[in-house]
């Protein structure tokens, strides 16, 4: 693999709300190589989506990036002026959202929208734009792509709309695509089709992909490496097989044990007690400690980074290392 495409250091994104400062992303660091697929897993409120939005400079007030650095291909993105950011966004970094209906304009045809996306980054004449759009639609498996350019978003099914959104993201052959729960709203059979296509597309075009999801299984089916987020922090990261097979963090273990797919039918599931903490009133130390069976007094202080550069976790009492 070549040098890192994306290097995130100690990213902090905070929301200044009425009730106080909400640290949605609290010291996230990771690197992503060109062509690599990285899964970002977490439950609602873990900060996984805000991490994605922070990377492309789309954090809306009252939220803002409070610190850290995001280096994309050597260029610092934190504090980058909006025009420069717009030049990158959609061209070199693209995003795919959960709800394709919300990202497509209902009164413009797919072809018009795609042509606008092409021309926004100086993509040449209308004819060239249409050709590019048709090629892009065909790549994501939309049959009869040229004719479909003149269709409106409502003429597509949910799965097809998400394919269109992905086709738009692919238009400029970006170096990085950030996909935020792109298959969550879709049926399993459609989700499987899109997962298979994304995997193939990423491999053949050499695009790096950050796949954000609450579902450990979908992420793992796609990604090379996976990061698990909890309360704004990355509590575990590593190659998919290692994280699934030998998780270091008790939270990752708990997530795996909660899955009915891995349990004996009819038996109680090994549940994680309690619920996710409010990010407004986090006690110091490990945010998972109140729900953790292995917690000790040591967990009142910030947990250390354990493991190695490949597979690591933030924990005082990592699994597989004795209590």
């Amino acid at each position: 693999m070549s040098a890192a495409l994306l290097e995130v250091r100690d990213l902090r994104t905070h929301f200044h709300t009425r009730a106080g400062v909400l640290k949605a992303v609290d010291g996230v660091s990771f690197t992503l190589a060109r062509g690599e697929i990285l899964g970002l897993v977490g439950e609602s409120g873990s900060g996984k989506s805000v991490t994605g939005f922070s990377l492309i400079g789309l954090v809306d007030p009252p939220g803002r990036i409070a610190g850290g650095s995001i280096r994309f291909d050597g260029q610092e993105l934190v504090g980058l002026a909006q025009p420069a950011m717009r030049g990158l966004r959609g061209k070199r970094i693209a995003m795919v959202f959960q709800d394709p209906a919300a990202t497509l304009n209902p009164v413009l045809t797919i072809g018009q929208q795609m042509a606008m996306a092409v021309q926004a980054h100086g993509g040449g004449g209308e004819r060239a734009a249409r050709e590019l759009a048709a090629r892009s639609l065909a790549r994501v498996g939309i049959p009869d792509a040229v004719a479909r350019l003149d269709a409106y978003p409502h003429e597509f099914s949910g799965g097809m709309r998400q394919r269109v959104a992905i086709a738009i993201a692919l238009l400029h052959q970006p170096e990085l695509i950030i996909a935020d729960e792109p298959t969550t709203a879709l049926d399993v059979s459609i989700q499987a089709q899109i997962l298979a296509e994304m995997k193939a597309l990423a491999k053949e075009s050499g695009t790096a992909l950050i796949w954000i999801s609450h579902d450990l299984a979908t992420v793992s089916s796609l990604a090379d490496r996976v990061m698990v987020m909890y309360a704004g922090r990355i509590v575990e990261r590593g190659p998919v097989a290692e994280v699934l097979h030998a998780p270091l963090h008790p939270y990752t273990r708990g997530l795996l044990d909660s899955l009915p797919a891995l349990a004996t039918p009819g038996q109680r599931l090994a549940q994680i007690p309690g619920s996710t903490p409010s990010l407004l009133s986090l006690a110091p130390g490990c945010p998972f400690a109140p729900r953790c069976a292995r917690a000790s007094t040591a967990c009142g202080t910030d947990p250390p980074q354990v493991g190695d550069a490949r597979h690591g976790a933030l924990c005082h009492h990592p699994l597989g290392a004795g209590p």
Binding site: S189, Q191, A192, L195, A217, S221
Partner: peptide, 17 residues
């Protein structure tokens, strides 16, 4: 179609759309 986690011997995730 459902991505399945296979733990134990053959770690990996398989699905077929």
């Amino acid at each position: 179609s459902v991505p399945k986690l296979a733990l134990g011997g053959n770690v990996g995730v398989t699905f077929k759309p």
